[in-house]
Design a protein around this nucleic acid. Structure first.
Length: 188
DNA sequence: CCTCCGATGTGCT
DNA sequence: GCACATCGGAGGC
């Protein structure tokens, strides 16, 4: 997923940081317990799971086969199109590298809300949220290319209390848009 | 119904 | 490093 392009409500980002959540196997996952909220993650992949926390929205891509609840949290991205719209949503004075740094800020840049819950990110669509190919972006962005041409780093997930030591956070090495690591104060 | 609390962000010390 | 805004989900009663 790193290096892919995600378009949301007239803003496009190149994904630079993600975290994996392993459903029932992972106490940090919302799908650790199967509830109405986590039900979407038990369904087919490539759907958008949106949740609200502390007044912010966060966006996940459901992964794995239908029936298995796993997901990838989108933590940071580089805005490559719709910069004016993203600045309007986030604040005109912000540095471009900070627009989509952190999952709440990423969702806000893309205009993602609970209205986008459940959309199929692989379905061709003119509006809303979906993955797009690099050649759909004009001008063609720098850094677009095979993901195996960049270095990927990994480490523990940010701010989780349970299962805090597994290295399921992945990011593009040295990318300036990647968020800072913070360990949960009461991490196990 | 009520309480607890978090996969956050921001600002201040 | 720490407080806190802010609010729905989850679970206890």
């Amino acid at each position: 997923m790193l290096g892919r392009f995600l378009r949301g409500h007239d803003v496009t980002i190149r994904i630079t940081e993600v975290e994996a959540y392993a459903g029932p196997l992972d106490p940090a996952s919302h799908a650790y317990t199967r509830t109405p909220r986590s039900e979407i993650m038990y369904g087919p992949p490539s759907r958008l799971y949106v949740y609200r926390i502390h007044g912010h929205f966060c966006a996940n891509v459901v992964t794995g086969p239908d029936g298995e609840a796993s997901a990838v949290l989108l933590r940071a991205g580089e805005v490559v199109d719709g910069l004016d719209v993203a600045l309007r949503r986030r604040g005109e004075h912000l540095a471009p590298t900070r627009l989509a740094r952190g999952p709440g800020n990423l969702a806000k840049s893309l205009g993602i809300t609970m209205d986008d819950l459940g959309v199929d990110l692989d379905a061709p669509r003119s509006r809303g949220v979906r993955f797009i190919a690099p050649d759909e972006i004009d001008p063609h962005p720098a850094g677009a290319g095979p993901i195996n041409s960049v270095l990927i780093s990994s480490g523990p997930r940010v701010g989780v209390r349970r299962n805090a030591d597994v290295a399921w956070r992945y990011w593009i090495t040295d990318d300036p848009t990647v968020s800072a690591y913070r360990r949960h104060p009461r991490a196990h």
